[in-house]
């Protein structure tokens, strides 16, 4: 496939990385993080808006977005958090696609809601896949754009598509689930905690701490200190809520290290992790207990049929791009 430069990065924003929906989970045994878009539903939606397959590489932007100069006319798709995107000063809301011309400036202003926005470009970003995906692994320093966040001076390329859809329109938006309680299952080390700890996790109101990152959402609330703080290192699925000696839980996100030595009190089900990833520092997190059956039914990625119980509204949009 041919590709050509698409964006010159004028400002990188707080943390802007190339990500896609596929993970490196099967490389966990080499110490590699799963990685990938923290809200894969929104990444997939951004791609659909740009006319791409769900797993094309997109930009994941955190809290404060970048400033990008468009190097050739194309179609962009935006989904996820509302970080105040504009094209030459005109606002673009999540759930919309927009045609942009050579020389246009895409910038981001004030954050309105959510934490992570996804910007897709027709054809998908062209970076070399490493270990099965184009996603950036910040800890390992590989994947994406040279294994690091995008910064001023970078030039990003995208694959060229013969008939780039020069259309603009709305295609519904994924529910960011900002008020939803996150569904959890008990973790394997629950017996290492005092009797009431799991109940406290369920009853309390937690706040996302500013030190949260792509590795984990650090939560602030009541003490959950385990009776034993150190356990032999154990493989950790994404979503595991581990509690270090300070008693404050950390819900592991996609860039978590694949093994760790803190007891795990509970685990957030995969379908609800995007909702956690969209909480910004200071936002409230509540948990509710679910069942294994419900957890297995809940979908982590949108199906091709557009509406489901996970809050997808694609079918309600009138026949795709309008």
């Amino acid at each position: 496939m041919r590709s050509a430069p698409i964006f010159e990065v004028m400002a990188g924003g707080l943390l802007t990385t190339v990500q896609e929906t596929r993970s490196r989970a099967r490389f966990g045994r080499y110490g590699v993080a799963a990685g990938g878009a923290l809200d894969p539903r929104s990444a997939a939606l951004a791609n659909r808006l740009a006319g791409n397959p769900d797993d094309a590489a997109v930009l994941e932007m955190t809290l404060t977005g970048p400033v990008l100069r468009v190097l050739r006319s194309t179609t962009l798709g935006l989904a996820g958090a509302d970080l105040g995107m504009t094209v030459d000063g005109r606002p673009v809301a999540p759930g919309w696609s927009v045609a942009v011309r050579t020389g246009a400036t895409v910038s981001f202003g004030e954050r309105r809601c959510g934490a992570r926005a996804y910007l897709a470009v027709a054809g998908g970003l062209d970076v070399a896949p490493v270990l099965g995906t184009r996603s950036t692994d910040l800890a390992g320093g590989f994947g994406g754009l040279a294994g690091r966040a995008v910064r001023a001076g970078d030039v990003l390329a995208a694959f060229t598509v013969p008939d780039a859809p020069a259309r603009a329109g709305r295609w519904g938006a994924a529910d960011l689930g900002l008020n939803r309680p996150l569904r959890i299952l008990p973790g394997p080390h629950r017996p290492l905690f005092p009797a009431g700890a799991f109940l406290t996790l369920l009853k309390a109101e937690w706040q996302v701490a500013p030190e949260s990152n792509r590795m984990g959402a650090r939560l602030v609330g009541p003490q959950l200190a385990p009776r034993r703080a150190d356990i032999p290192s154990v493989g950790l699925p994404v979503g595991a809520i581990q509690v270090p000696g300070d008693g404050q839980p950390i819900a592991l996100l996609a860039d978590r290290q694949p093994t760790g030595g803190y007891p795990v009190l509970a685990i957030v089900i995969a379908a609800d992790l995007p909702y956690l990833a969209q909480r910004a520092p200071g936002d409230v997190v509540r948990f509710m207990r679910t069942t294994l059956e419900e957890a297995r039914r809940a979908k982590a990625l949108p199906g091709t049929v557009a509406t489901d119980e996970e809050g997808w509204t694609l079918a309600r949009a009138t026949g795709g791009l309008t």
Partner: peptide, 14 residues
């Protein structure tokens, strides 16, 4: 089996 992660005394199987 999608992934295995061996660790100190256990294997995680996804």
């Amino acid at each position: 089996v999608e992934a295995v992660v061996p660790a100190a005394t256990s294997v995680l199987v996804e």
